[in-house]
Design a protein around this nucleic acid. Structure first.
Lengths: 156, 156
DNA sequence: ATCGTTGCAAAAGTTTTGCACTCAA
DNA sequence: TTGAGTGCAAAACTTTTGCAACGAT
C-alpha cells in the first residue's frame, strides 16, 4: 500500500547510519507516505497522535529532524514564514507555483532546468546536487476574480 | 549612505497602504540596509536593541512582518529549518547557490529564467510575479577538499 | 545485555497579545 | 486631536532537554 520501495530505502539509510528501526520511526514514515502532501510540524504531530495514540511530540520532532538530516524528508518554504515537510522522492523536481492570493501550491516539472544547471555550474563553479524553484504569482482562479473586481471597480 | 531610493520607496509604500512613518519603522529599515545581508529574526531584534536601545521585541516582529506583507522585505529559507529576512530589492533575481558542506551562499544571476517563466505560465496558467531558485551542491572549496580526501582515502 | 530510543514533564525559546501611553498625521 | 503604533509584561505557542523505562539488535 504505502510506497514500499521508499520505505525500504529509508530503512536502509537508517541502518547505514547506525540508527534503529523503531515503531515510531516507521509510523512517521507510513503517515507521511499515506498522502505525499506537504505537512507542517503541527499537522504531523496531531495526525500521528490521532492515528497512533501514545507517540510523543518530542519523538516526532526528533525523528522528523533526523529524517531531514538523512535526506529521507525535505522541507519546502511556504508563505515566507513556515516550513512544510514532505517525503523526499528522488525523482522530485521540487518546482512549485504558489498563488500569492489563495496559497494554492502546484507542483510542476520544468524540462529546461538541466539547461540552466549547466549555466549555473559554469558561472559559480559549484557542483549541483539538487534545487528548488518557488514561483509566486496568481493562480487562474484568482486571476479571474481579479479581472472581475477590476471590471466592477470594487476595492480589495 | 543607506540606500535612499529604497527608503523612499518603502516610505511611499507605507503611506500608500495607510501606515505611519514611525521611528522604529525607520530604524528597522536603516538597520536592514546597512549591510544587505540575510538576518534571522533574532539577529534583527538583538542588532536593533544594541543600536537603538528601547525598541521592543514585539515592535520588531510586528514591523518585520508588516514589511514582508508589503513586499519591502522578503524571506529566504536556510538549512531546511530557518527563515532569514532581507531587503527586497526589485532587481533581485533571488537565485542562490548553497553549499551543502560549508553553508556558503552565493547569489547569482540567471539570464535564462525568462525563458523558463514562459514555459511555466503555459503549463500552469498562473501569472508569474516573482520567484526564488535555491540550488544545492558543493562549492569549489569543498569540492577540492572532497577530492583530496578521496585521494588520501581518509574518512569524513 | 547493551545502549540507542522513547514518552513524559519540565525547561527553554519564540511569537503574539493586552493595555496604557505616545506620537505622526 | 486622535487613532495607529509603541514598549512592556504576560500569555500562548513551539521546540528542546533530562531522565527513567523500554526494546531493537
Amino acid at each position: 500500500m504505502a510506497d514500499t520501495a521508499f520505505v525500504n530505502k529509508a530503512k536502509q539509510t537508517l541502518r547505514d547510519n547506525g540508527y534503529k528501526l523503531t515503531g515510531p520511526r516507521l509510523m512517521i514514515l507510513e503517515f507521511m507516505l499515506e498522502s505525499e502532501r506537504h505537512y507542517s510540524m503541527k499537522e504531523i504531530c496531531c495526525g500521528l497522535q490521532k492515528k497512533f495514540s501514545g507517540i510523543g511530540t518530542a519523538t516526532v520532532y526528533r525523528n522528523v529532524n533526523l529524517f531531514l538530516k538523512l535526506g529521507i524528508f525535505r522541507t519546502s518554504p511556504v508563505n515566507n514564514n513556515q516550513f512544510y515537510y514532505t517525503v523526499n522522492q528522488p525523482g522530485d523536481r521540487h518546482h512549485h507555483m504558489i498563488c500569492l492570493k489563495c496559497g494554492t501550491r502546484v507542483e510542476f516539472n520544468s524540462c529546461s532546468f538541466a539547461f540552466i544547471a549547466k549555466e549555473i555550474e559554469n558561472k559559480t563553479h559549484f557542483e549541483i546536487y539538487d534545487h528548488t524553484l518557488e514561483v509566486y504569482g496568481l493562480c487562474p482562479g484568482c486571476l479571474a476574480k481579479k479581472k472581475d473586481i477590476a471590471r466592477n471597480r470594487t476595492a480589495d
